[in-house]
Simulated scan of single mutants.
Amino acid sequence: MNWIAWIIIASEILFWIVILAGLIARYMLHRKKLGFILLASTPLIDFILLVATSVDLYRGSIATQAHALAAVYIGVSLIFGKSMIQWADERFRYYVTKQGSLPPKRYGLDYAKHYFKGWIKHLFSYALGAGILYGLVVMIQDPGRTEALVGMLKLWTVVLAIDLALSLTYFIWPKKAKA
């Protein structure tokens, strides 16, 4: 596994460590400002990953799936990051501090709309990640070195289409509450 793959793994781990530290600061240490600063700093992790990936490719490395995955990770993390932090915040507050409540389960049209909004976020993360992938391809200007980037873009396009199809099925066959 190349060093970019390790940086991606470290970025994902660091993302959740920073979120956990922010939640601990906010709820257990009662340092709301510190908690906010930690939670708001998660995009810096994405920036570091973007710089590392770009520098590695600029120096002549052949793009690998790890480089392509870095672009996907950045797109998903930046677009879904706020909702992931909100998800973690709700559960931390409920399970650890015994405050608040979990959001109610969604069913029917409400679930379909919620899932479709998630698909819209997926579309935005795709646009961001695809822009990064395309930018790297343009920066490198060598099709032999960018096959993995183009391949990831094609794969992600298929995944996005499947996610849209799945999202639309919830409008046709709404999710029902368990009896």
Rank of each mutant, 00 (worst) to 15 (best):
S77D: 13
I8F: 09
Y126W: 12
D142S: 09
Y115S: 11
M1F: 05
K176D: 02
L29M: 13
P43W: 13
D56A: 15
K33I: 06
I62K: 12
A63E: 02
Q65L: 15
I8Y: 08
E147N: 08
L78I: 07
D142C: 01
V158M: 02
W87K: 10
H30Q: 06
S11E: 02
I13L: 14
F80K: 04
I48K: 13
A165C: 12
S125F: 06
F124H: 14
L39F: 00
W6E: 15
K33C: 01
W87D: 14
R31N: 07
L49D: 14
I74A: 03
W87S: 09
W173E: 06
Y58S: 13
I140E: 03
P43V: 14
F92P: 12
F36C: 14
G22K: 05
V96S: 04
K175V: 07
Y27N: 04
V150S: 02
A5S: 10
L14W: 10
W16Y: 09
Y95F: 12
A40V: 07
L44N: 00
S125C: 03
V159Q: 00
G35R: 02
I85V: 08
K82Q: 13
R26K: 07
A68C: 03
Y115G: 01
W173Q: 07
Y170A: 06
Q65P: 11
G129C: 00
L133I: 02
H30C: 01
L160F: 05
G35V: 01
L49R: 15
M1K: 09
G22V: 13
L102I: 10
R145C: 02
F47A: 15
I4G: 12
Y94A: 06
L78V: 05
L136K: 08
D46H: 14
D142M: 03
L23A: 14
G118Q: 05
L14F: 11
F36T: 15
I4K: 08
A71L: 11
M84L: 15
L20Q: 01
I62M: 11
A5T: 04
P104E: 03
S54Y: 09
K113N: 12
L155E: 06
H67E: 04
D46M: 15
